[in-house]
Design a protein around this nucleic acid. Structure first.
Length: 628
RNA sequence: GGGCCUGUAGCUCAGCAUGGAUAGAGUGCUGGACUUCUAAUCCAGUGGUCAAGGGAUCGAAGCCCUUCGGGCCCGCCA
């Protein structure tokens, strides 16, 4: 029996007693007590009934407690009422520990059926293929990847998409750089192609637009060619963006992030999708052709309010705007339109998962990546546009389809880190900008983290071979970065500081990974596998009990984070687990526990912890190393 | 001007959805614990007018209102 079922059992007993007493039905809560001195489990029913019954909360709780005591089985050992009126339960220790440990052994422990297999799309990453990923993109990627993992655990059928804007202005910029700016197609020795395009070509060419008129003119031409396709320039553009994309994906894969399908914007533009959506919006009366005023000749969405401007979707020259390009894609993701694409294999990823890509050629497979629920991960600076898309989509969706913008605040660079880029910030943190070259590349961060974690690992494990050390270093570096990107609320700005990110102590990924490594070492040194058949009566110290209870919370946390699309809850849970274990580790000896029964019981607890933490870390995309 | 987000310990943040028990972590600082399962650890101490004011409530960090501070967004750019 899981902790969740234990709560439910107590809840239904309280429910029954309350209704037997003739109390009105209220939606009360049964959950873990906030502090150990309050027992294991708390119920707030007294407060909720206080008003309708016109009695003191404690009085009501006492009346329920009395009945509960009379019929309590082996599960609950004590029922107490605490001021100001909580109904608190102490659970029989051996029953508690045994039920948690035995349920945690299950392979699917932590899974919770919230989604009922609902087809869901998570779109994230979607970085223009003209530059390398920087630390701001990493936040998007890690949020998206973590949410996808959590939703799968909560039984949603998830497809992860990455939208490749290969026909936009930013791509046009680097093409101009290569064709007319004098840049070689090959990066200098040792530089990744995406870094070269972003750090050198893109930054340089946008600067030169100011002074070199002819380049700015070429930019418009190139953009047009990219949209139309077919031409030599378009072919060249395709070659370049695919090379950049390949390098970007290497970084994503390095972070443990995988996708199901790549969608190319150029193909969406060249497909029938836009025309279909445009016609549909016209026939539904969502958009209007403006005949007068400053927007004359444009197709616009009328604004409801007086202060808000009308939104232009198609310019007076007939070219669709940025936001308009997003609408057919949104509709495609929801499966509202006939799918014009076939699908080709792009790659087989590290976890053996196939990565597909769209194609307009007839060759290839017909697949279905659409979902009834679409979650688009984009930073909240795009909220306004995302709201408009959500509204349009809701106007022509059918049935229960829903489009969700999962927004998050941006990553800024700390004053000190900005200084390392030779920026004077006036004492403030600074917004990143790809165009101005103000950013810190993801590969760079992973590399310097890797150097540090390698040194640490080598110092601690001098006997390990080079291959193992490098692997551990990379796992810990990725763990540190992923955890840092996910541990705080989506609504909080992350101020990224290079030197601070090298700290691997306290509330960090490595702290959690270290707890796992410690547990693994105990199990290794034990020399025999724990046997779960026996009783766990001996696991009675506060450290053992706390650890067991933490293990028991897993599926509750999964449910919570999936329901609220809140990945940080799992991060916090992993941290809690690790804290409980480290405290246990320091205070309770496992291998020197005395009797073989005691050793076995504690080994079971350690094993159970290790497995649960590994599964929870997997939701964060963080590896659980055996040594570090 | 309008919209979204934000303000909790020196610093970085939990807690706020669903009001309830003495407001919690990390970091910093001070001190302590490695002959005993790896000290990327643990233990203790330090540190708070929960931005300010008002309201409803038996009860507010949390709900409502007002004000103030900070960030972002509001183009026939993407």
């Amino acid at each position: 029996m899981t902790l969740r079922l234990l709560f439910e059992e107590i809840r239904s007993t309280v429910q029954k007693i309350s209704s037997d007493l003739g109390y009105p039905a209220v939606n009360f809560d049964v959950s873990e007590a906030s502090k150990p001195e309050f027992g294991d489990i708390s119920c707030n029913i007294g407060f909720l009934l206080a008003k309708p019954l016109k009695k003191r909360p404690s009085e009501i709780s006492e009346s329920i407690a009395e009945k509960y005591r009379a019929q309590k089985g082996s599960l609950v050992s004590e029922v107490n009422v605490h001021q100001p009126g909580y109904l608190n339960f102490i659970v029989n220790n051996s029953v508690l520990v045994k039920s948690i440990l035995e349920s945690s052994v299950e392979k699917n422990y932590g899974e919770f059926d919230l989604g009922g297999g609902e087809k869901t799309v998570v779109e994230h990453t979607s970085v223009n293929p003209n530059k390398a990923l920087h630390i701001g993109h990493v936040r998007n990627i890690i949020i998206g990847d973590t949410v996808a993992r959590i939703l799968r655990k909560a039984n949603y059928d998830v497809n992860v998409l990455n939208y490749v804007d290969d026909s936009g202005l930013q791509v046009a910029d680097i093409i101009v750089g290569f064709l007319y700016g004098g840049f070689s197609k090959e990066p200098p020795q040792g530089q990744k192609f995406d870094h070269y395009c972003g750090d050198v070509v893109y930054v340089n060419i946008t600067e030169r637009y100011e002074t070199e008129r002819h380049l700015a003119e070429k930019r418009v031409l190139v953009l047009k060619e990219l949209e139309e396709g077919r031409s030599e320039i378009a072919k060249f553009g395709d070659e370049i963006t695919r090379r950049v994309l390949e390098e970007q994906l290497k970084t994503c894969w390095r972070l443990g992030v995988v996708y199901d399908c790549l969608n190319f914007e150029s193909q969406i533009i060249r497909s029938s999708l836009w025309k279909t959506v445009f016609d549909k919006m016209k026939s539904l009366g969502i958009i209007y052709l403006e005949n007068e005023g400053k927007n004359s000749g444009c197709w616009v969405i009328k604004s409801d309010s007086d202060v808000e401007e009308d939104k232009i979707l198609v310019r007076s020259n007939g070219i669709a705007t940025y936001i308009a390009k997003d609408i057919p894609y949104a509709a495609w993701k929801l499966g509202i339109l006939d799918d014009p694409f076939h699908y080709k294999q792009y790659a087989v990823q590290k976890n053996h998962q196939v990565l597909w890509q769209t194609t307009l050629e007839d060759a290839g497979t017909k697949l279905d990546f659409a979902g009834d629920r679409v979650i688009t991960v984009i930073d909240s600076r795009q909220s306004r546009l995302q709201n408009i898309i959500t509204k349009i989509i809701s106007d022509f969706k059918s049935g229960k389809k829903s489009y969700v913008h999962l927004g998050y605040e941006s990553v800024t660079l700390s004053q000190d880190t900005a200084k390392t880029l030779n920026l004077e910030t006036g004492g403030k943190s600074v917004q990143m900008s790809g165009r101005k070259g103000i950013y810190v590349n993801a590969d760079y961060v992973l590399d310097i983290l890797g150097v540090k974690t390698y040194e640490e690992a080598k110092k601690r494990n001098p006997e390990l071979d080079e291959v193992s050390l490098v692997k551990i270093a990379e796992q810990v570096a990725v763990g540190a970065l992923r955890y840092a990107m996910i541990k705080q609320d989506l609504d909080k700005i992350i101020t990224f500081d290079l030197s601070e990110s090298l700290s691997l102590e306290g509330d960090t990924g490595p702290y959690i990974q270290y707890a796992h490594a410690r547990a693994v070492r105990i199990l290794e040194k034990a020399g025999k596998a724990p046997e779960f058949g026996s009783t766990f009566d001996g696991l009675a110290t506060v450290h053992e009990r706390d650890l067991a209870k933490a293990i028991g919370r897993f599926d509750i946390q999964v449910e919570d984070s999936a329901k609220n699309l809140s990945p940080k809850l799992i991060a916090r849970y992993c941290h809690e687990l690790a804290v409980s274990f480290n405290s246990f580790y320091e205070h309770v000896k496992v291998l020197a526990a005395g009797s073989p029964e005691m050793i076995n019981a504690r080994l079971c607890l350690v094993w159970s912890f290790k497995e649960t933490l590994r599964k929870a870390l997997d939701l964060l995309g963080i590896d659980a190393p055996d040594r570090m």
